[in-house]
């Protein structure tokens, strides 16, 4: 049986893992211990992570080069699925990341600016490696809109409609990041996750809001997500990947235990 995936996300800046932009509070003491992406990747590999996402938060040409190095080094020691996001603007960018050892590339703002990038990438490399990441925010009681540029700019697009369009263009997976829930540790946005998961025929990865083990279970059970992505709970050692999986297994959610 296909299992639900537990995916640690590493935000990389200048070759070092940093807390994502969403984590405003300085936690210097703990941060230093999670600086090296390869050390972290090895740790999560040992903990039984199902996949890892490396996210280039600098999204510059320089960042892209250092990201290729990170992916190559991670691939040298972790024989597991790797996804890369951030700063990918062209089909060539995608090719570089896949060549370096990534299995999937994740695009967000560049897909909004140029939706044809989804089609071109899927045509060249196959839908299975094109991930469209969506930052959604609840703007009315029953309306979620898509934001770009790290959640700063509203696009006016309705989130479910954009997810459906991305899939029509060739996206093989959707990562849904809730701007409202992100960094709050108060749980995922279950409503929009479920709506998107039930509207698109491709896997949906829920992101943003993980604080407790039950949050992760909820978004799989109620939100109907196919995978969960989290950063700080893993980086700051709140839970290990294994603890998360043991909890999910107790609730009869199919997970891969080693």
């Amino acid at each position: 049986m296909l299992t639900r995936r537990v995916i640690p996300c590493l935000d990389v800046h200048d070759g070092q893992v940093t807390r994502g932009v969403q984590f405003g509070r300085a936690e210097d003491g703990r941060l230093q211990s999670v600086g090296d992406p390869i050390a972290l990747a090895l740790r999560y590999n040992d903990q039984g992570a199902d996949e890892m996402v490396f996210f280039d938060i600098t999204a510059s040409a320089h960042g892209r080069r250092s990201m290729i190095d990170v992916i190559e080094r991670a691939g040298d020691c972790c024989f597991m699925p790797l996804t890369v996001g951030g700063g990918i603007r062209t089909v060539d960018d995608m090719g570089m990341m896949l060549k370096a050892g990534a299995d999937k590339v994740s695009i967000n703002s560049s897909a909004l600016t140029n939706p044809d990038l989804i089609r071109a990438g899927a045509e060249k490399y196959g839908s299975q490696c094109i991930v469209v990441s969506i930052d959604a925010k609840r703007v009315q009681p029953d309306r979620w809109e898509v934001f770009s540029a790290g959640g700063r700019n509203s696009t006016g697009l309705e989130a479910v409609a954009w997810a459906e369009r991305a899939v029509t263009l060739g996206a093989g997976e959707i990562v849904l990041n809730s701007i409202d829930a992100d960094g709050t540790k108060s749980g995922f946005d279950l409503i929009i996750t479920r709506r998107i998961s039930e509207s698109v025929g491709v896997p949906v990865v829920a992101s943003g809001g993980a604080g407790t083990l039950d949050h992760l279970a909820e978004v799989l059970l109620i939100g109907r997500a196919d995978a969960v992505l989290a950063a700080s709970i893993f980086h700051f050692g709140t839970y290990t990947v294994r603890q998360v999986k043991e909890h999910l297994a107790r609730l009869n959610i199919p997970v891969r235990m080693q």
């Binding site: 049986m1 296909l2 299992t3 639900r4 995936r5 199902d50 996949e51 839908s127 299975q128 093989g172 997976e173 025929g201 491709v202 896997p203 949906v204 196919d226 995978a227 891969r256």
Partner: peptide, 15 residues
């Protein structure tokens, strides 16, 4: 084959 609730592509760990 399409069936309700089955996500395509299959992505992840299976037995």
């Amino acid at each position: 084959h399409k069936s309700p609730g089955l996500k395509i592509p299959q992505i992840g760990w299976n037995q």
